[in-house]
């Protein structure tokens, strides 16, 4: 049986599968893959207010690199 992934819709109107969530240093990163194009991916982080959760853009290019590294490390690929 194929694994089912949660799907969210981003600003571009496209559907993205949530393939992972990683919490590091107080931030929860969400790893998203375009359902129609598996090489099209992006990373967002979760922000909560009192009642709702949002997926927001990362703060900087450096944060993108860090979040990418968390993902790579979690998947047991040692780049050192």
């Amino acid at each position: 049986m194929k694994k089912e992934y949660d799907v969210v819709v981003l600003e571009d109107g496209l559907e993205y599968a949530v393939i992972d969530e990683i919490t590091k240093n107080g931030n929860t990163y969400v790893y998203l893959v375009n359902v129609q194009d598996e090489e099209d991916f992006c990373i967002r982080k979760v922000v909560e207010n009192d009642t709702e959760k949002f997926l927001v853009g990362l703060s900087s290019n450096e944060e993108f690199d860090e979040a990418l590294l968390y993902f790579v490390n979690k998947n047991n690929y040692n780049l050192a």
């Binding site: 194929k2 694994k3 089912e4 992934y5 949660d6 799907v7 969210v8 819709v9 981003l10 600003e11 559907e15 599968a17 949530v18 969400v30 893959v33 359902v35 598996e38 099209d40 992006c42 990373i43 967002r44 979760v46 709702e52 959760k53 949002f54 997926l55 927001v56 853009g57 990362l58 703060s59 900087s60 290019n61 944060e63 993108f64 979040a67």
Partner: peptide, 21 residues
């Protein structure tokens, strides 16, 4: 990176359905 970075990017975190890739 371009799709990931930027404070203007913001959507509600609502799971609309599930799918198999």
């Amino acid at each position: 990176r371009s799709k990931s970075v930027g404070h203007a990017k913001k959507v509600k975190y609502v799971k609309v359905k599930t799918t198999a890739l």
